[in-house]
Design a protein around this nucleic acid. Structure first.
Length: 359
DNA sequence: TATACGTGGTC
DNA sequence: TGACCAAGTAT
């Protein structure tokens, strides 16, 4: 793998493997269909790629099916109400993706369709270098280089790059570009990612089963499992807070829509205190609050959270300082940490959203 | 360049 | 149990 001749041999070897081993995925047009002239739907490619950002295939499958059933094309998604889309996204995480998804769908409809160039795609909300390249390559057959975490790992091993991530990113992208073929760039990208997901895995890579082993410098040196190197991450602090579960006599829960930016932005949640070292209680209304035993624990990307849950049943005329009562609210529309709070309160009070006796 | 931003699975 | 990790983007 030290010269261009060997680099040129990688794509054909990888594509031969892909033609025989490609995974069947709901958004994918397989090599056989592709050869028969079938073109992937840019809407489905875009939607799947956004969902797949930092998210596993297994998790995405169900969401992709529900989204495409409910909104079969970009026009339908663009016409949907924001809260409907946010509710359908609930539990998938990184909620800025859902906000950008809505904005992107509307921009695409306003433009009369998806742009078919890297630059046009890159200008849309929520589409960065990876997603722009993947949609351009997979849906529009453009010879763009797709670089995700899988590709970085595969390339770091192929070329035995010992420089640690994230510093190594630019160099790895250049090496990946050297491998990208003019023919079948979309299948090549998907093949690289499939290889990273199934053979060239972060731990215990199955080099003996790898179609590229003969090209791989790391395998040759016996250091594949040690690459890519990564710089140490900062430890996660623990923050604490209070969450308030108020249920009105008709069963309606008191919820608020969180600010559009920042953590869980735009999603519904229980009113609460600030989250920090030693937060002060901040009940959203005056009531007889009962502090539930135990805490709800949740870990975000950059901190641990421990929430103390307080619950109250309040009369029909209750007038909260924050949030609003939402009859018929579906707990499934809550982000996971808020659903954990719901479940914690629910365990302490059967039929949480049901009307109170005598109400 | 560094940090904020979710969640669920794995070892 | 807990740290690592996954088909990244925005600022």
């Amino acid at each position: 793998m030290r010269d261009g001749i060997e680099s040129a041999a990688v794509a054909p070897a990888l594509l031969r493997w892909y033609d025989s081993a490609a995974r069947v995925l709901p958004w994918r047009v397989g090599p056989a269909e592709r050869a028969a002239g079938e073109i992937p739907d840019p809407y489905r490619v875009w939607l799947s790629e956004v969902m797949l950002q930092q998210t596993t295939v297994a998790t995405v499958k169900g969401y992709f099916h529900r989204f495409t059933t409910r909104w079969p094309d970009v026009q339908a998604l663009a016409a949907a109400a924001d809260a409907e889309v946010m509710g359908e996204w609930a539990g998938l995480g990184y909620y800025a993706r859902a906000r950008n998804l809505i904005a992107c769908a509307r921009a695409v409809v306003a433009q009369g369709g998806f742009p078919d160039t890297l630059e046009g795609l890159r200008a849309l909300p929520g589409i960065g270098a990876y997603t722009a390249a993947s949609v351009a390559a997979i849906a529009f057959d453009r010879a763009e280089t797709v670089v995700d975490g899988n590709v970085e790992r595969v390339v770091a091993r192929l070329f035995a790059v010992t420089e640690p991530l994230p510093r190594a990113k630019p160099g790895l992208a250049k090496l990946a570009a050297r491998l990208t073929p003019r023919e079948r760039p979309g299948d090549f990208a998907q093949a690289m990612m499939d290889l990273g997901a199934t053979i060239c895995t972060p731990r215990n890579p199955r080099c003996a089963d790898c179609p590229l082993e003969g090209f791989c410098a790391a395998a040759h040196q016996g250091i594949a499992a040690d690459l890519p190197m990564k710089t140490a991450k900062a430890p996660k602090p623990t923050r604490r807070g209070y969450a308030y579960v108020a249920i009105r006599a008709d069963g309606a829960p008191l919820l608020e829509t969180r600010p559009p930016k920042g953590l869980l932005g735009g999603m519904p949640g229980w009113p609460g205190s600030d989250w920090g070292e030693d937060p002060a209680p901040q009940p959203p209304l005056t009531a007889e609050w009962t502090e539930l035993p135990g805490v709800v624990k949740h870990t975000f990307t950059h901190f641990h959270l421990e929430l103390t849950v307080l619950m109250a049943h309040v009369p029909l005329g209750a007038n909260p300082q924050r949030g609003d009562f939402r009859p018929g609210f579906d707990p499934g529309d809550l982000p996971t940490v808020m659903r954990k709070v719901h479940d914690h309160a629910s365990a302490a009070s059967s039929d949480l959203f049901g009307p109170r006796p005598g109400a």
